[in-house]
């Protein structure tokens, strides 16, 4: 299958007043055409930074140190700003967490969607544009779209604004939609509506979606493949069903164990992951999860684990205990996954 996006050994560092923060430390991943890729991780895991750097939206302190971001065969890290602007919003669109601050409060919502269209296709007539805006707002299921067109953002609820943001993102029929925690600021019932909408739209338009979130529940509902990030690195990658059925990495296992399920026995204690996420201004020398890992070995604290490939390339996992060199005794992971090999 063709890849829409290919990120290879991406390193991103923030040069701040308090020192350098290596937020992304060698990330490899791809997004296939028309798939929905879920990216999970806690705050500070580098999941948002990875995709902000795809569009080079890192702000003045963030810098892509090395690495390649191939979008349909073109390297975005080397693209000129003018070309990049055409890609941004046109070919790759983004939806952010906060729908309150993403819209200009002084312009009617319809005009803002229209502006998006105009920015990427100057030949479109005013009438065509208006028709298209209406079509887009209907597409994201905004009730009474004709009336809402003239409304200002403050007249819209959070969920409605996020719909408008999605409409803007999809205005130019992008090849890839990056949704960075689009439902985190919303209530569950609204989140449910937005997720349903995204699923329906994806089925309709075949857009590739990257869904960044910390909520495994959302991932389970929406995505076909998952990338788990921690400490600026990819810890595990797997098809959705396999990730939930047999997580390979101790971090993923811990994450799954710490979320309570509505259907689970209540008397049982929750199993949280002890400790706190690493301070990324001083990332650990070895595996970033080593200080919190229940299975930690000496080697884990000294060297980063290689990313091993399993199940014929469908799964990846960066853990020393899955390495072919790992001894069998006292190793709960021995033989858990077959065919661990270095890529």
């Amino acid at each position: 299958m063709q890849h829409v996006l290919d990120i290879r050994s991406l390193h991103v560092t923030f040069h701040t007043g308090g020192g350098d923060i290596p937020a992304v430390r060698g990330v490899n991943l791809h997004v296939a055409k028309g798939e929905c890729l879920g990216v999970v991780g806690e705050s500070g895991s580098g999941k948002s930074v990875t995709f902000l750097s795809v569009l080079r939206l890192l702000g003045p302190t963030g810098k892509i140190e090395t690495g390649q971001v191939d979008f349909l065969g073109r390297d975005l890290t080397r693209m000129k700003p003018a070309q990049l602007r055409q890609v941004r919003g046109g070919r790759i669109a983004m939806v952010f967490q906060d729908p309150m601050s993403s819209l200009n409060p002084l312009l009617p919502v319809g005009d803002q969607v229209g502006e998006m269209l105009w920015a990427h296709d100057k030949r479109l007539s005013k009438a065509d544009r208006d028709a298209r805006v209406l079509e887009l707002l209907r597409m994201v299921r905004i009730p009474e779209a004709e009336k809402r067109l003239r409304g200002y953002p403050h007249e819209f609820s959070g969920g409605m604004r996020q719909r408008v943001m999605i409409a803007m993102a999809l205005a130019c029929k992008p090849d890839l939609l990056i949704a960075d925690e689009p439902t985190t600021a919303l209530d569950v019932s609204i989140q449910h509506q937005i997720l349903k909408l995204l699923r329906a739209l994806q089925a309709e338009m075949g857009t590739g979606i990257v869904f960044i979130t910390h909520d495994l529940g959302v991932i389970a509902q929406l995505c076909s493949r998952v990338i788990v990030m921690y400490g600026g690195l990819v810890m595990e990658e797997a098809p959705i069903a396999e990730l939930f059925a047999s997580p390979l990495h101790p971090y993923t296992q811990g994450l799954l164990a710490s979320i309570p399920s509505i259907r689970q026995d209540k008397a049982r204690r929750l199993c949280p992951i002890p400790g706190s996420p690493p301070d990324m201004s001083r990332p650990p020398a070895g595996c970033p999860f080593a200080p919190r890992c229940p299975h930690v070995r000496v080697i884990c604290t000294e060297r980063q684990a290689p990313c091993l490939v399993f199940s014929g390339g469908a799964r990846r996992c960066a853990c020393w205990l899955h390495s072919p060199d790992a001894p069998a005794d006292d190793n709960p992971f021995y033989g858990l996954a077959q065919g661990g090999e270095r890529p």
């Binding site: 569950v188 989140q191 449910h192 699923r199 529940g217 389970a220 509902q221 509505i262």
Partner: peptide
């Protein structure tokens, strides 16, 4: 409705639609 809206962290269970 609220309970139905919670995304269940289990891909094998009933999906959104």
């Amino acid at each position: 409705g609220l309970l139905a809206s919670i995304p269940v962290p289990d891909p094998s269970l009933a999906r959104l639609q």
